[in-house]
Structure formats: C-alpha cells, structure tokens
Amino acid sequence: MTAHYRSVFRPGLFAGQVVVVTGGGSGIGRCTAHELASLGAQVVLLGRRLEKLQYVASEIVADGGRCTFHRCDIREETQVQDVVQAIVVAHGRIHGLVNNAGGQFISPAESITARGWEAVVATNLTGGFFMARECFVQSMQAHGGAIVNMVADIWGSMPGMAHSGAARAGMVSFTETTALEWARYGVRVNAVAPGYIASSGMDHYPPDQGPRLRAMHATVPAGRFGTEAEAAAGIVFLLSPAASFISGTVLRIDGARPQVRMGWGQAAAPAEVQQREAVRPFDGFHRYQPPRVFAQQPDLEEGAE
C-alpha cells in the first residue's frame, strides 16, 4: 500500500471546498471521501454507524486530509435538516454533495413486503431527496454547488431487486428535474450509475449469494469487476470544474454491461484484452481491500482487483 491516494486529478483541485459524502463509512463512499480529501477538500462524512465514520475519518486524517463526521439517518427528515444546518454553521457553506448512501436486499417482487419496499425506497430515494433539498435550501441556493446522486445499473430492469430498481429510476428522474429547476442558481445535479463494482457492499448479501456474486463479471463485456476507485473518479469528475457544462445526466460506470444482448455469446473480454491501456483496471485507492466474498473463491480475485 502506498502512502497516498493515486488520483488522476490535479493536486489541490478541491482546496477550500466543503463536500458532504453520505454513506461515507464504507465502499464507494469511503473511497470517494479519500479521493476528495487527497485533492484538498474538507470532507464531511454522514452515516448511521458512528464507529465506521470515525474509522474512515481517522484514515483520512492519517493520510494528511481534513475530515469531520456526523451521525445521520438520511431517511429522517428532521435529522437531515439539523445536520445540514450544523455543517453550514461550522463551514460556512456546502460546495458539493455526494448522495451515496443506499442499500437493498435480494427478493423476488412477489415476496417484497410493504415494510421492505418502504425501507428500500426511503434509503435510495427519499433520503437522497432530503439531502439534496436541504443542501440546496440551506446553502446552494445562495452560493451554487454541485450534487452527484448515486443510482445503479437499472437499464433493462433489476430482477430480484424491484424495490431498488424503482427507487433508482425515481432518483434518475429527480436528478433530471432538479438539474432544470436549480440551474438558475448555479447548481449542477448529476448522477452516477455503477455496474458491478468490487466493493464491500457485496458482503452485505446472504452467504448463499456468494457464487452468483463472484460470477457476475462474466456477463460484463469488459470482462471484470469495476474498482471503487473507478466509481469514485466518475463522481469526482462530475463535481469538478471540468464538468461545469454537464448537468442532468447519468454517468454509467459499468464496462458496457447494459449492452449485453442474447446471441453474442460470452460477454467477457479475454484476459489479455483486459490489460490493454484503455481498459486496464484503475486502482487509485491505496487502502482498498477486496470484498470478503471473493476470498471464498481465490481464482476469481484477479478479476475483482
């Protein structure tokens, strides 16, 4: 492990900026927070588990970055209002929001209960709405800013996750709508849609899903899983000045997975193709650890790096 995040963006790109990252205690959120801090941002982590936030914040500080954290359940409107207010009081304004927090469980549509449906929609849609609205009302309406919402590979449906697919599709529409409504205030709103990313989120599924999770890379034309750093780089780009004329769009980070169609045989690219410069895995995150689920079948770990 090297001493610092190996970002492709220039040093100091976010110096003087305050960026809030929800779900920053693990996975893509943790990786994104590290990259933003390495580029000079004052990162503010939000999440439900304080110990995870403390751990990531200590990593960032140890690496020379600046990071604070707040416990917040984004599904609770009052908590969101209060924590955004606290951030604005402490730092003056919010320059960027990474609406990363989310989660779901595997279930056929007919088995999803009302409680399960509502929980997933609240986490993946309503909570993101609360965060975006409050960052806008309490800071960005007066000063401008950039928001990046997290969605998923919903193109062609999400079998086994109807609740998440519906919520993520809703977030795509919310992204497009707020990009239009808030443009006159100097606010850009975009989304990223990660495909199969080798992230710690994979370890949240039941153990019996392990074989299925480990085999998913075979359906990706790029022939591998994406890295957390590749997802983070897309988020950082959309927050950056290079994306100043990009708003209301969804950046897919999926190795062309939604383009897979019947009749084309094996989707995965040969191993030698995966090492060519244009598609070689980007491993910028110096603290990355593969999901535990991959350790159960070491011969697939190469595809997950």
Rank of each mutant, 00 (worst) to 15 (best):
A3W: 07
P270E: 09
G25P: 08
G223V: 05
F245G: 01
L213R: 10
P281M: 06
I235P: 01
F285A: 10
H163V: 04
R10L: 13
M216T: 12
E277S: 05
F225A: 11
F9E: 11
D299T: 09
S26V: 08
G234W: 03
R261Y: 08
A229Y: 08
V89C: 11
V250S: 00
E181F: 02
S111Q: 15
Y288P: 00
W264F: 12
C72Y: 01
Y55W: 10
T113S: 15
A231Y: 03
A41I: 03
V148Q: 07
E301N: 04
C72S: 07
L39I: 15
F237L: 13
G92S: 08
T227W: 01
P207E: 11
L45H: 09
E305P: 00
L97P: 06
T178F: 08
R115M: 12
A86E: 08
A142D: 14
Q289L: 08
M161N: 10
F294Q: 00
I60P: 00
S157N: 15
I147Y: 10
P270W: 10
T22Y: 04
A222W: 06
V18N: 09
K52T: 15
G47M: 11
L238P: 07
Q138F: 09
S164Y: 07
V260L: 11
A232P: 07
T32V: 12
N149K: 06
E35I: 07
W117R: 05
D153A: 14
P206Y: 12
P298H: 02
L97M: 14
H286T: 08
H95W: 04
I87P: 01
M140I: 06
A198Q: 04
V189Y: 01
P11N: 13
R188D: 07
V98M: 06
P291T: 08
V121F: 00
R184P: 00
I154P: 00
L46G: 04
V120I: 11
S240D: 05
P241Q: 09
T177R: 05
R133S: 13
G265C: 06
G128E: 02
V18M: 03
G265M: 06
F105S: 12
V220N: 03
V80C: 13
P221F: 06
P207A: 11
A183E: 10
G195C: 03
M158I: 07
A109C: 14
G92R: 09
S240L: 10
W117H: 05
A142W: 06
E272F: 06
D73M: 02
R168L: 03
Q85T: 15
A256N: 12
G25M: 10
L251W: 05
T32H: 12
G23N: 12
Q81M: 12
C31L: 04
